[in-house]
Design a protein around this nucleic acid. Structure first.
Lengths: 202, 202, 202, 202
DNA sequence: GATGAATGAGTCTTCATTCAT
DNA sequence: CATGAATGAAGACTCATTCAT
């Protein structure tokens, strides 16, 4: 097997195990047993267990950043309505997260209990979402689409928390993959809940 | 020192360490060093490390349940307005969580990565909040205060996520304790955000 | 067993094994088997294998330094003849080294092949001997007892090499402990060999 | 590349690494990285790591034996003075050792810490020098050039130790290669130191 | 009850060696 | 012959738990 495939394979098994059992309860032995490879093979591709975990998270993060850029090209910021924009953003996030329940589990639930770099590699996600929402809200405010008296920081926190929990609850824990229609309706509900409080009356 | 005090002391130090470093990165050695007691003493009061952790969480959970009962006695469900009731509930939750940043950290962030009973001991919290909100919403619906077309399950998830994240963000991570006025205004903001989407128009 | 005794015990067994098999061929398992203690016990007293080794060497070095000071108090530098002084120094060194064949083996033979701190902890010995001889020779030169044309650096190297090899050959490798008379005659031979070339003719 | 050249290449890199880092701290990985060859290639030419090391030492040993024979043909044992003969021998040894600082390092410093055959492959050198000196001294004794009361075994040990240490000190550790004049003067000093004690007065 | 020395099962990690391509 | 991915035995180290004092 080529080096690249083997590395991907290991990441795949590691992801599943980390997601189900957590970082500290997943042993290298578990991973190599599941993947049916030798113990040492893991260390040919990853410096150590930490490195394996962080690689996993970083790849997911990069995928996500790329996904955001791609999606943003699909809309015209000049003409889209605030409501549609909000919906679009929420839907994209849910779409992306719904694709990988294991990583969802890892990223959304493993907070404390990881030391040092491990923890911070995970926190980037939440910060990213939070910051995106903050900047979106500030942009909307400048254009008078978002209410001027909104506490941006807090609203963003609330939306982040709501979004992540929904994602975890609906994508991470459960097995069955949601279809487009379901995600669509989820996004609609979320917009329906936060919209009235955020947007200026037309 | 009396047995009871000593047990409390151990829990105190354990809580702080678990909160800052997580379950797996906190060693019994750390706890006894900080508490300046002997290694074996911990095992006089707790069956094992798991027991110590679970005791911690259970105490917090019981405190919380008790707190809810107490608070519920302070209001008259017959006369209170839906809006005030929502505010009251949100405020109580924030009040309670703000009192113990360490436990906030533990309960709100340690998700995956704990095995078996440890994990479920923590998940009770989230379920509890979620269920409270669900029952509140359903109650409001029966009384026509809450919009009939609301997706209760999802709304509850959103509110739970928003609430927990705000609590973690404002109580868990930061050092300075919030005062009543601050918590009050937080509760108001939350109600302000979720209210418009939840309640029927008067 | 008291902590101090246990630590000493471990050092004792480690010394014997390091001496016979070398650093890399001595496993912690060997040490604990010989000492009939548990694997973890070693780590209660020493940070790691390196630490165990370095502690061993440092103790030996300190013993030696102390021994030198003590011995130097026994003679009167003002009245002793150069020849007797040389003999005295050589004899002291041999005396000291002959007391601990295992450490002799370790210190005199393990040169390269140890990394970093391990290696330098050993090299201190040779440097110490070399420097002592250099300063002795320079002292003798100032008093016209040592020939003015002597290449001090080189002579010191030769004497160091000769001394260490003899010590290793006679103390390190063989089992039977030398008695005082034997060491005495060794010292006399060494002085007899180097004396004629070093001292000024009387 | 021809098989022979490749084998030489591997030995070359191995020598440098063994010399600088020792046997146990030199990995096959280091060697193949430096030599820019594949991991498996080493095993095409050497049975295993031990074999690689021992081959290295044996080659050096054979070179040395050959060198001794060659040099011995250059003098006339019948006419040469004892003093000149001693000088000649010392100089040859220093000459030879000064040519390969890496092997000097390996042979002169790696004593203990190598197991079994590795260690004995190295010890042959010291024994060889020691035996040469012993037989030279005995030869001189028979011819009344060497003092009859000399302790041959001990004198030989002293000279061996002195010689090897000087070689290590001057050739092994330092970078700059000594020129002939320097080695010449070293040899003269050594003879000057040991000569007076060894030879009979003329 | 309190102590802290001792235990040893459990893990990660290394690295010489093999072997299919 | 050369390659380098794969192997797995071996070894260092951790840490919750026990128990004699």
């Amino acid at each position: 097997m080529k080096a690249d495939e083997r590395k991907k394979l290991i990441l795949e098994y590691a992801k599943r195990l980390f997601s189900r059992k957590g970082y500290y309860n997943t042993q290298i032995a578990d991973i190599v047993n599941e993947a049916k490879i030798a113990r040492g093979t893991v260390y040919q591709y990853f410096k150590n267990k930490d490195d394996l975990f962080i690689t996993l998270i970083k790849e997911f993060y990069n995928d996500w950043e790329q996904n955001i850029s791609l999606e943003m090209n699909k809309i015209d910021l000049k003409t889209i309505s605030p409501h549609d924009y909000f919906y679009f953003r929420v839907k994209n996030t849910l779409d992306f997260l719904s694709n990988d329940p294991d990583l969802c589990n890892i990223v959304l639930r493993m907070g404390i209990g990881l030391s040092g770099e491990l923890e911070s590699s995970i926190k980037r996600f939440e910060k990213k979402i939070h910051n995106l929402i903050v900047s979106d809200l500030e942009f909307g405010m400048r254009n008078k689409h978002v209410r001027a008296d909104l506490n941006v920081e807090m609203a963003s926190n609330l939306i982040t928390g709501a979004l992540l929990r929904t994602a975890l609850y609906d994508f991470g824990a459960k097995k069955k993959k949601k279809d487009q229609a379901e995600i669509d309706s989820m996004a609609r509900e979320i917009v329906g809940i936060f919209g009235p409080a955020i947007f200026t009356k037309k």
